[in-house]
């Protein structure tokens, strides 16, 4: 029964979606997961938790996309949402300078709370409205680079750039996960230990009855 899991391993990633109201977060995930945009026939009750299954270079990936409450009154709750997340998609509207400022605030907070373990994507949405652009491409891209994030341009309306964005993000999260596995050594199962922190094992010598009450176990 040697670990037959080499090819059978499934990656599960949690990605949080951050950004000001109306920049197009919901439109983007609905486009990505259900290929719909402003559709009157959208039957999903909710667009706040969506999943997508991918197969990347033979590895299965389960992607869970978490929409987060972005209204000001909920601002302090951010850390509860993005705890344990592998990636963050920070969306702004290219026609709205303010929404780009908001993204900068999120980046600061995420880096402070999660360090470099989290893969950041900064996304300028609504590029179909390029004539009304208020955030310059150079500014956005150089900012992203300065904070170790990747920058993407998308249009949920025209279905541009979204597939690429999530695929790229998944690849980066896989790399991070693999690097982490190498660090930890391949033995331990990840989920339990990572959730519960380092297990301190007390090695104080202890007279343990050989057999004990549960020799059957």
């Amino acid at each position: 029964m040697a670990a037959g899991g080499a090819g059978g391993k499934t990656y599960s990633f949690k990605v949080v979606l951050l950004g000001e109201g109306c920049v197009g977060k919901t439109s983007m995930v609905l486009r990505y997961c259900e290929n719909k945009f402003n559709d009157k026939h959208i039957t999903t009750l909710q667009a706040s938790f969506l999943t997508k299954k991918l197969n990347i270079t033979g590895k299965r990936v389960n992607l869970a996309i978490w929409d987060t409450a972005g209204q000001e009154r909920f601002h302090a709750l951010g850390p509860i949402y993005y705890r344990d997340s592998n990636g963050a998609v920070l969306v702004y509207d290219v026609t709205d300078e303010d929404s780009f400022q908001k993204v900068k605030n999120w980046v600061k907070e995420l880096r402070k709370m999660l360090g470099n373990d989290i893969c950041l994507c900064i996304v300028g949405n609504k590029i179909d409205l390029d004539k009304d652009r208020h955030v310059s491409v150079e500014d956005a891209e150089s900012y992203a680079e300065s904070v170790g994030a990747k920058h993407y341009h998308t249009s949920a309306k025209l279905n541009k750039g979204i597939e690429e964005l999530f695929l790229d993000l998944c690849k980066r999260m896989m790399e991070t996960a693999q690097a982490e596995e190498r660090l930890k050594g391949n033995g331990a199962s990840q989920s339990a230990s990572s959730r519960r922190g380092v297990q301190i094992v007390d090695d104080e010598p202890q007279a343990t009855p050989a057999g004990g009450c549960c020799s059957s176990g």
């Binding site: 919901t26 609905l30 909710q46 706040s48 978490w66 929409d67 409450a69 972005g70 909920f74």
Partner: peptide, 15 residues
């Protein structure tokens, strides 16, 4: 939420 909202609920509505 869907009884008073035609669009799929977003995270703010849900919370």
């Amino acid at each position: 939420l869907s009884t008073s909202n035609s669009e799929p609920a977003n995270a703010d509505d849900f919370l």
